[in-house]
Each structure stands twice: as structure tokens, then as C-alpha cells.
Amino acid sequence: MKEARIGIIGTGVMGADHAAILADGVANARLVAVQDFDLGRAENIAASLGVRAIANADALISDPDIDAVMVCSPDGTHAALALRAIAAGKPVLVEKPLAASLEDAEAIIRAEVAAGKRLVQVGFMRRFDAGYVEMKQALASGELGRPLFLHCVHRNAVGPDYLTSELVIANSAGHECDIARYLLGEEITSAIVASPPATRNAPNRQPQFILLQTASGVVVDIEVFTDAQYGYDVRAELVCEDGTVALDPSPATTLRAKGHDGFRTPADWRPRFRQAYRAQLEAWTAGILTRTPSGSSAWDGYMAMLVTKACLHAWKTGNRAAVELPEKPSLYR
């Protein structure tokens, strides 16, 4: 196989963006088909990119001219589609979350273990962001000494109407839960959550402040504020015994106008992580060709869900909650 022929299920915001990146050119990959429950939407994207529109997801997964599948459909469909791809023996990149329930995530783990090979990657694209990669490399170098604190900020301009206080934890904070495990290279063992009052701009949901602790004692704090108004803003600083390393939020240009000196804040996550999404696709397709998977595994997706489960329990009870730590199958070690 000289290139991986990709089919995308779901052509909403994320599916359309992935399709555009693939059509623009990704090493080792070629977009060949898209599918959506709204066939008209899929047909429009297919026509604009010169690929096929397929009527249903099962037909796309079983198509002999498609080597790998991306699942960008609504969260509740992720598990069933991932299981079908595993059954077909095809690599599948599933947008986060891995599944809508822990039971469904566990079914994916069992199916992949039974298949005897890693076929699932979860779309935690921050692992491919240059800033986070450099943070991990700085820690691994030993120059900074032992990690003590990881400070994280996750802000959106305006959250969607369906977003609740619970989903701020269960969905929005999922990226931070994964990136903390990635940067620190260990499991999170406990969670505490504190909630300030809801804001006047979003009276039906609260911002959340999450405090996690890892197996070695590193403290991770996460501010999740989905209605910050000014734009999309992600920050991280790793504080160690002998120094710190932090993300640089500044883009390549500075704007000076009308009494302001600074840079524009992106409206959402896509401009901020544009290069990370491309790097993720390049690594995924290279792994398909070399049979060496990279990125977040199904196990990583499952562990992120277990961390958010503990956070939800802590939020509801007001107490520290332990994170379940099941035995990791040898496939993921």
C-alpha cells in the first residue's frame, strides 16, 4: 500500500474540516469518499472536493476501495461505527469522545483486544500540537527536574446552547484530561471540582475549576470557561523543581491599531490547532502504512472518560473522588 484511501463519516464542522485538509494534500493519504446522515450535505462536500458521496455508513466502512475510516459523526454514533470498523479490520480515527458511555468504550477495548491489533485512534489532536510536544520534550530532557504543577486554561468565546454544567466537565475538559496524561506520562488518581456562579452571559451553566492529582503526586488544575466572550484561548504551564515551560499563545503577527497592541484571539479551536490537526492526520496515515500506530489509543480515550467520570462524581458530591484504574491490556502497554 503506497497511500491510505480515507473515507469520512460525518460532514459537519469537524468532518468538513478534516475533508478539506485531506483534499489539500496530506502525505500518504487520499480522501476518496464522505458520508453523512444528511446526504445532500455529503454530496455538496463530495462535489466540491472531487470525491464520492456514499449513502450510509456501513457501505462506506465495507467499501473495498477504502482502507481507513474517520468517524466525525455525533458522539452517540462513535462506538457502533468504531466497532464496525474493527470488525472490518480497518483503522479508524474517532473524534473524541471515544464513546458516549463507559460501557460502549469497554466494548471497543474488548473488540480491539480480540482483534489482536490497535486499529482505533482517538482524535486528541493536542498531542500533535508543536507547543505541547515541546513541553513534553523539555520535561523528558531532565533539565527542569521533577514536575510539581500543571496549570491549564480552556476558554471558549460562547458555548453552544446544549452545553450544560455537566458537559463542561464531561466533554470540554476531556482534552485537558488527555493532555495531562500525555505530558506527565502517568495516570491521574483523584479529582476535586469547584464551581463559581454562572455568568450573566450563560446563566444556565457554570464555569468549572478542576483539581487533579497524579499517581506520583503532581497537581493539575484546569479552568474550563466556555463563555469567556473574547475568543478561544488555551494555556498550559508546567512548573518543575528547576524551572517552568509554558505554551506561547502568540501567533506569528502582532496587531497595533486604535490604541491596542497585541494579537487577535481566534473565534474557536480550529485556527488555534490547524497545524495539529494536519500533523495528526499525517501521523495517523503514516502509522497505517507502517503498521505502527501513534496518537491516543482506544485505551487513552477510555482513561480520559474515567477521569471525567471521577470529576463528575466530585462535582456532584463536593468530595474528592478516586479515578478507577483498571488493569491495562497488554495490547496497549
Rank of each mutant, 00 (worst) to 15 (best):
G262Q: 06
A321L: 00
A140I: 05
G50I: 00
V34R: 06
S296M: 09
R127V: 06
A130C: 10
I54D: 05
Q208P: 10
N44S: 15
L150R: 06
P329E: 07
R264W: 09
T11I: 12
K258D: 12
C240R: 03
S62I: 00
G259Q: 02
P91Q: 01
Y182T: 01
R5F: 07
G76I: 01
A321Y: 00
I6P: 09
K136A: 11
A115W: 03
S62P: 04
D58C: 05
L83E: 10
L306S: 07
Y182L: 02
S190I: 01
L325Q: 14
V71L: 13
Q280Y: 08
G243C: 06
E241T: 00
R146E: 09
A170I: 06
L150H: 02
A283Q: 07
N171W: 13
D261Y: 12
A321I: 00
T292F: 05
W299Q: 00
I61T: 08
L49R: 07
L49C: 05
D268L: 05
A198H: 05
P207K: 02
D221A: 08
A82P: 07
F225Q: 11
A4Q: 10
H78Y: 02
A57T: 08
P293H: 08
K96V: 09
C177L: 14
G295N: 00
L49H: 06
D242V: 00
